[in-house]
Amino acid sequence: MKILLFGITKDIIGSSTLDYTVDQTDLTSESLLELLKEKYPELSKLRSIALAVNGEHANGTEVISDKDEVALIPPMSGG
């Protein structure tokens, strides 16, 4: 799975996508976010960090598979 990166998360991870292999059947969006924060501690220093799953803001309970489109959502600043 390629995790889509935007804004400051591109600068932190140094790429516009992040390859990630889901190796468990019950990986929730909350656990995935925790794993990413462990791997990239700079993410925890942001004002907020969240995931979107298949184009919707994640609530933490979504079960993630390699077929899902996942994006890291740093603090939004449109308008």
Binding site: G7, D11, I73
Partner: peptide, 28 residues
């Protein structure tokens, strides 16, 4: 609509100054 847009729409703004730039609201 504009208040909600700022909260929910995944758009990111980078501000450029004469001496650098930053992603808005990224850090506390």
């Amino acid at each position: 609509a504009i208040d909600t847009l700022k909260e929910t729409v995944p758009i990111w703004k980078r501000e450029y100054f004469e001496d650098g730039s930053h992603w808005v609201f990224s850090h506390p």
